[in-house]
Amino acid sequence: MAEIILKVDKLKKRYGNKAVVKGISFDVKKGEIFGILGPNGAGKTTTLEMIETMRPIDSGQVLLDGIDVTKKPEKIKGLIGVQLQSSAFWDKLNLTELLRFFGSIYGEHTHPMTLLKEVQLTDKAKSHINTLSGGQKQRFSIASALVNQPKVLFLDEPTTGLDPQARRNLWDLIKTIKNKGITVIITTHYMEEAEVLCDRVAIMDNGKIIALESPKTLVKQLLSRGFKKTRHVEQANLEDVFIDLTGKDLRD
């Protein structure tokens, strides 16, 4: 039995009279990639932000590495790396300067080049953030979330808006991060992405978790209930064609 790094217990959040997260509970194992799936408005981002100490918790408890996030938010922030959905970095500073500054907040002596190498941005070390492409920005955002060598990395829809090449490239990066022993918690709209990356997924709808299993098990369970796709199953899809024609090389 793998060690539990994150324990979420009966977590609740409401805005006004609208309950957004309705008492969800789940555990994340150390070293896994844990996906949170769900349609827009399901409560994924709110859930993540409560765990990240960015949003006050109404009720319930979150233990990260055994620490209660509401009691020691500063300590939690030191243990996690966060890539937010709508965040930005200062302009007029280059990537190296930004990483060095973020490192200094954690009291870490950062090696910007090592981090940039990890996310394939060494040639952009002296560039400013506004000159980067969408995929490069996401990769930099992940690099900045790794400055403190976090135990848990949170990625909120990291591939939204990226082209297929950039998306695949980011998948490879996330797998490398997992192989270094960092637990990854990711939200996404892309089922294919969840199937490729996630060891287990929680499917959220309307503020509740309605399924929590490995992607394979979930598919098996569905099939065992007698589900059949009405359409003939193709051996390839349009995305396969696209990748076949344009190649996997990154375009930015």
């Binding site: 990240e52 960015m54 500063e74 300590k75 922030k77 030191g78 966060v82 937010l84 709508s86 965040s87 930005a88 970095f89 200062w90 973020f102 907040i105 954690y106 900045s144």
Partner: peptide
């Protein structure tokens, strides 16, 4: 723009 949001997710 979200620059402060990103900062707030750090222990600053």
């Amino acid at each position: 723009e979200g620059v402060l949001r990103r900062l707030r997710s750090t222990p600053i």
